[in-house]
């Protein structure tokens, strides 16, 4: 499990939790708009060593079928994954 984006963000007063303690991992907004460059994984070159996952400050990289995949909703495009990758499997592409 990880914190996930809720379908409906609280908008009115009566939808906001009454006390300042409420459900953990309650996300209402994405971070995708922060990004100028988007890391793109070349699945041919990726061997699933997952070093990018280890060093991602946002934890947006996970493993699927032996390859790294990125959650673009929350990736900020810092580029650490590209520099960590020993196989040059990650390219940064400009967001349009």
């Amino acid at each position: 499990m990880k914190p996930y984006l809720r379908e409906k963000a609280p908008a009115a007063f009566d939808e906001i939790p009454e006390f300042p303690s409420y459900e953990a991992g309650f996300l209402t907004t994405k971070n995708a708009g922060w990004r100028n460059f988007r890391p793109v994984i070349d699945t041919k070159k990726c061997n699933g060593c997952m070093q990018c996952y280890l060093y991602c400050p946002d934890g947006v990289i996970s493993e699927k079928d032996g390859k790294a995949v990125i959650d673009y909703d929350f990736c900020k495009g810092c580029g650490i994954c590209r520099k960590i990758c020993k196989f040059n499997a990650i390219e940064m592409e400009a967001e349009i």
Binding site: M1, K2, P3, L5, G25, L27, T29, K30, N31, W34, R35, M50, L54, Y55, C56, P57, D58, G59, V60, F74, K76, G77, C78, G79, I80
Partner: peptide, 28 residues
């Protein structure tokens, strides 16, 4: 890497891109 939980406990935060502090908190 084997001692790490597969779950993420610090996710969707608003730290600057490339923040070292958030990496430390996430990994811990």
């Amino acid at each position: 890497m084997s001692v790490l939980s597969k779950d993420e406990f610090f996710y969707g935060h608003k730290a600057c891109a490339g923040c070292g502090g958030s990496l430390a908190v996430r990994i811990a």
